[in-house]
Design a protein around this nucleic acid. Structure first.
Lengths: 344, 344
DNA sequence: GCCCGATTCGTTAGCGCTAACATGAAGTGA
DNA sequence: TCACTTCATGTTAGCGCTAACGAATCGGGC
């Protein structure tokens, strides 16, 4: 291989000066054409564009970032999970950001603890990310964020709805839970049992809160909660317990996979759904309509959440927002066949 | 706001020269410490590190990229889907790449057509990505890749197993299908029906090929294929047809969600699984064990696929590979309760 | 003591781009 | 006609970093 500095580099990527030379203008004029500045003669513009096409020139973003001090990069921190909610959110966000011309760089963390989150955020700051989005559904993640310097716009998704002083987009878990519980109550059930998600998730806490408050408002007694994680396996275990108790006629599961496990447990124990017990889930996973029976569930609109997060971040980047705004997205109820009236 | 050039910029990010000044060395020595070069005295190294810590200095990647001409960035092109396979793959890849110190930038495309893929790849090349990974499970996506200039290392995941001249990592769909079909045949079924994925997906084609060849080898006749997409809804529709035909005793579904739809159709039509008909899926989604009945399925190891893709890409980046290597990951069978012997 | 090689550092010159200012030509109003 | 703005372009100076080279210092072997 030849020595880079001792020979003319052949086959190197064309740079702005190459385009300028070919078009017979200065590099700065090329820059102006590229950035859509006014005050460039139409004919010059065309000549430059032709030269760009002829050379196959592509601007070097690193150089631009260095010169301007800002990048078109949005950093995302998310958990390494294939859970439906987070991954839908991520996909929607990536698509929305790309549509706005942003590059999105995702940093997955194995666990949502303070150190991991801090490291991931720091990583993005090192890239000079224009803005950062953290999907922070647990208390530990949210706490870590409190320590982050505020010179980079940052939006939290699914963070602590109670915490002040951070731009936040979240699904109104409580409202979603109310929808589910009220639906069951209106079908005639005296009370509703709850299989909850992991206690340290805000989503789980919010759904539980909504469940409990709705029961209280209706004057119904709240039965003990069956704690679980988000998996079908833990839903199944909880379901086996609930199936043994004849007084259980309605169950609100913190997500659809838990509900799936519950459906399976009920089926195994010979308790018909919705004949003997009604079940409502949360998330509306694409296959929820094909469970046995098709699952009534609560649907959060992830596209909207993603769009809101992006818009909040962009206004943070442009300096319009001080970073304390919050947007709440309200979910809707999707009625299918897993809810019926109690038999007495 | 003050004019950037007419006043000393206050509060600007510390740069290498600031660290150098504080440590009483040249900026180049700071660079050496940062990049772990030898030939720096231990005492100097410590002084530099102390200065870095004191100032909270973080290197500017854009400047480094500009100076070196290479980035630590891997571009990924993927479809905007929440399908279990692709999204698991993506998550696994992001984690693996981050562990190697790479930044991964994901570009989602809405449809896997030529233009979208080309644009997405071009986008990454503009970023001077060190390497590109394309998850290209359809023929259209794969074709688009043929036109891409080869100066950037590129690895295709789930691309055309038949195409030569591209670095490729793929799951051995055919072998997976053989596992499923042979399992059903060994249970005593005379033949196995197939509900396939979309025809333009290599995954679907490979699974179908494996199914057909295994039947041929066993001397069984291959019944007509029920075409579907990957959704539970289309599995359900196909299932309703199959449920009507008493001769159907074994079904191999191209993925677990199709299988779920089939299970539901069989249930509705009063055909017991696995009593009357056996079903095998593909993917081993986390909740497959909680279907009614728990689903026997084929499990591709996405972590391994991701790891192979990364290692292939890295050897491409370091110039060890000419970009024609291929790695094939063989899936395994996960036996649960949805397969039984035919009643005669 | 002297020479040679290794070690440790500093100096210089870009990487490709944008922002700010400079320049010259053309138009405008009195 | 002349000052005065507007437009179209060129020139210059960095952004923060690394690579290449050069200079000083140090430690032996003879």
């Amino acid at each position: 291989m030849d020595h880079p500095s001792s020979s003319v580099r052949v086959n190197r990527e064309p740079a702005m000066t190459d385009v300028a030379r070919l078009a017979g203008v200065s590099h700065q004029t090329v820059s102006r054409v590229l950035n859509g500045h006014p005050n460039v003669r139409e004919e010059t513009r065309l000549r430059v564009r032709a030269a760009i096409a002829q050379l196959g020139y592509r601007p070097n973003r690193a150089a631009r970032t260095l010169a301007t001090g800002r990048s078109q990069l949005i950093g995302v921190v998310a958990q390494n999970s294939t859970l439906f909610g987070p991954s839908s959110l991520l996909a929607a966000f990536e698509l929305a950001a790309a549509a706005q011309g942003f590059v999105v760089s995702v940093r997955r963390v194995k666990v949502l603890d303070r150190d991991s989150i801090t490291a991931a955020v720091e990583h993005h700051r090192e890239q000079r990310a224009a803005g950062i989005v953290v999907i922070a559904p647990t208390a530990a993640a949210d706490e870590a964020l409190a320590e982050v310097p505020t010179d980079t716009p940052l939006v939290t998704v699914d963070g602590d709805p109670e915490r002040a002083g951070a731009a936040l987009v979240t699904v109104d878990q409580e409202a979603g839970a109310r929808l589910a519980v009220r639906h069951l109550l209106e079908a005639g059930h005296e009370t509703v049992w709850h299989v909850s998600g992991p206690a340290d998730w805000f989503d789980a806490a919010g759904r539980m809160r909504g469940w409990r408050r709705t029961l209280e408002e209706a004057g119904a007694e709240a039965p003990p909660v069956s704690p679980a994680d988000w998996s079908a396996a833990s839903g199944y275990r909880a379901g086996l317990m609930l199936a043994r108790m004849p007084e259980v006629t309605a169950v609100f599961a913190a997500n659809d996979h838990l509900a799936l496990g519950i459906l399976r447990a009920m089926y195994e124990r010979g308790r018909s759904v919705p004949g003997d017990v009604s079940v409502v889930g949360f998330d509306d996973v694409p296959e929820a309509g094909y469970f046995i029976p098709p699952l009534t569930t609560v649907r959060p609109d992830f596209d909207t959440v993603a769009a809101q997060a992006l818009s909040l971040l962009l206004s943070g980047i442009s300096g319009e927002e001080n970073g304390t705004a919050r947007r709440v997205v309200t979910p809707t109820l999707v009625e299918r066949d897993s809810v019926g009236s109690p038999t007495r």
